[in-house]
Design a protein around this nucleic acid. Structure first.
Ligand SMILES: [Zn+2]
Ligand SMILES: [Zn+2]
Ligand SMILES: [Zn+2]
Ligand SMILES: [Zn+2]
Lengths: 166, 166
DNA sequence: AACAAAAAAGTTATGATATAACATTTCTTA
DNA sequence: TAAGAAATGTTATATCATAACTTTTTTGTT
């Protein structure tokens, strides 16, 4: 289930120079293994969308994805992109960034499912930190009033260390 | 600056029965005083939008606001609603809920500005908890990698205590 | 009061994001 | 190989948001 040469990139690494070829390749391998393990079909259009998102740590809007799909020879109607994205999000291979109405590939598809995101307003890269559901401050407040959390959105916008320096 | 009879509603109270007339009236008073103190103009359309949002603890989309404005005799072009909402959000009288593309009135306009929200998927009420910027788990992780947070989105969807019971 | 500058509101048009609905094809498996 | 399920193709439309320019109102100054 875990790729042999899996090199999970951590949030610390996204904003610093790293071997992104290896980073993307290992995430794609992880996606293939996860789908195999769960009996899911990573069809050509789904894999292509994931590959597009894995090209960088920037978020892409659905229509940006659609454009690139069309260039690659796929159909170019909105449902083509949205269906593939829906599949990838549903199975945790991609995350939706609410603040941007856009999508990023998940670095660690096999990990727990309540990530938080840091969005750099300058270089537009998005780092994901693993986090568990209802683990932090919000979870505590929710428990205090008997609120049952089903899903969370936790996003911070700001400047990464490199962009502050520049 | 603080209304005489200010009754700040807390996140604990939103989901339980409370004197909402007083709750809304006190928030409106607080808004008037905040605007007076800062030299801001709470024009008729802005006040009406705030009043509409204060009618309940549910979030309203911009076009829902627009509809109600039109019924009240205001113009009905999108910028009418968006401008009023932009003003109210800019000055912390209203918050945007990213997950819903919708807006809720702020209960405590004078408090600090990095609230977290709990959204009940059944009764559609939204509770706000005060929270400070970068105070919790996310803030800690950001500091660890030198990420400078400018704004945050923290939203939890789930079921409030009352809706779990039913 | 008259004027100029700034803020707000009016208006038209369009851009950007997302989904409904139904037809067709492909895959799975019994 | 036939039936059902899953995925894709296609058309159309719903929903959310802003650009750009005009006119009116407010505010501060002469
Ligand atoms: Zn990388
Ligand atoms: Zn950056
Ligand atoms: Zn109330
Ligand atoms: Zn509820």
């Amino acid at each position: 289930m875990m790729p042999k040469n899996f090199l999970p990139i951590t949030s610390t690494q996204v904003f610093v120079k790293h071997d992104h070829r290896a980073c993307a390749r290992s995430a794609m391998e992880a996606a293939h293994e996860l789908c195999a393990a769960r009996g899911l079909r990573l069809t050509p259009v789904r894999e292509k969308v994931l590959a597009l998102l894995l090209e960088s740590h920037q978020a892409l809007g659905a229509y940006a994805v659609l454009e690139r799909l069309a260039q690659a020879g796929f159909r170019s109607q909105p449902p083509v992109a949205y269906r593939a994205l829906d599949f990838l999000v549903e199975h945790g291979l991609v995350h939706r960034i609410e603040k941007l109405n856009a999508f990023v590939a998940c670095n660690q598809p096999q990990a727990g499912h309540a990530p938080a995101f840091m969005i750099c307003n300058n270089c537009h890269q998005v780092a994901e930190t693993p986090g568990k559901r209802a683990s932090g401050t919000l979870g505590k407040k929710a428990r205090a009033i008997g609120f049952h959390i089903q899903s969370t959105v936790v996003e911070a916008e700001g400047l990464c260390a490199a962009c502050q320096a520049a």
